[in-house]
Write a protein that binds this DNA or RNA. Structure first.
Length: 296
DNA sequence: GGATGACTTTACTCCCGTAC
DNA sequence: GTACGGGAGTAAAGTCATCC
């Protein structure tokens, strides 16, 4: 049976040349609902009707209007990703994996990024159409979402190496891998193991620096003296920071191994070690912990 | 011709900006 | 302040073909 597509109760005033469900229905001589069922694959439709509708939809370049779907279902198929220092390989890596997983689950990733106030993004997300929000590496934004909970109903998940109570989070536990790496260094006979980070001094400034805490606990358990190398984030240029590490090495001698907060610090330390006249591997074992391809 | 299932249609709904 | 338009989904009802 074919419906009275030409007598559709809707004759929308077209605002653009975009093909709609109505257009396909009229061309196929069926109703919008039949087209909808065929396109979505939900519900019954004869093989002939399916073939006809799919052919016409392809000819007319029909694609479902996501805004209209969101209107009826309340779902947009979009997930917003906020935060993450995208100039860091570690975070771009996370974002790439997130996109793969979201696409595999039928969602589209909407990456929201700004170099200014990230809280503005939280305000913007209220008007954006997304089904949920994933925050990477910006815990203050989680607090912002919690504060605005009454006006913001989308689920929010936080991703970082640190686990927070009372927050939906994916905790990236680096302890096993980092501990294994330290054990490997010990197995190589290296006893003087330093920790390099971009903290200003040897104190644990941020409790979020999990690797430093693991390092301290490990060295304590082995009865070894901890040693800290600061990559001096207060210095303007990269060369100055390399020079600061180099001066540490020249002043105190080169440690037998240096474990770094991340691969970027490892690259910086690598330059300093080489500039100071030492060899990587032979003189000093260098360890990063982010998974940069050339650091593994 | 009644029962059944497959197929299709109708009416209503969603939310929000805009026009009146 | 109210009505309307925008595009698509849902529930319920209607139509048709087939079988016994």
């Amino acid at each position: 049976m074919e419906g009275n597509g030409n007598k559709s109760p809707r004759s929308p005033a077209r605002r653009s040349g975009v093909t709609t469900l109505e257009d396909v229905a009229q061309a196929a001589g069926v109703t919008r609902m039949t087209v909808s069922r065929v396109i979505s694959g939900k519900g019954h439709a004869s093989a002939a009707t399916q073939e006809k509708i799919l052919r016409i939809a392809a000819e007319l370049n029909y694609t479902a209007n996501q805004a209209a779907i969101a209107l009826t279902t309340g779902r947009t198929g979009n997930i917003a990703i906020i935060g993450g220092r995208l100039n860091r390989h570690y975070y771009t890596n996370i974002v790439q994996h997130l996109e793969s997983q979201l696409n595999a689950s039928g969602y589209q990733m909407k990456l929201l990024y700004t170099r200014s106030d990230l809280k503005e993004l939280v305000l913007a997300i209220n008007s954006a159409v997304v089904d949920g929000v994933i925050i990477v590496d910006q815990f203050n934004l989680v607090e912002e979402f919690r504060f605005r909970k009454p006006q913001f109903s989308q689920p929010c998940v936080y991703i970082d190496a640190v686990k927070y109570q009372g927050v939906d989070c994916v905790h990236n536990n680096v302890r096993p891998a980092f501990t294994q790496a330290l054990e490997h260094i010990i197995s190589l006979g290296r006893k003087r193991i330093a920790y390099a980070s971009n903290s200003r001094d040897s104190l644990v400034i941020f409790n979020t620096e999990q690797r430093r805490q693991i390092y301290l606990a490990f060295m304590g358990a082995k009865g070894l003296e901890p040693e800290f190398i600061s990559a001096r984030p207060d210095l303007e240029s990269l060369e100055e920071r390399i020079q600061a590490v180099k001066e540490h090495i020249q002043k105190s001698g080169c440690p037998e191994a240096i474990v770094c907060k991340n691969d970027e610090i490892a690259l910086l330390v690598c330059r300093a070690v080489l500039d100071a006249g030492y060899r990587i591997s032979e003189d000093v074992v260098l360890l990063g912990c982010d998974g940069l391809p050339f650091m593994t």
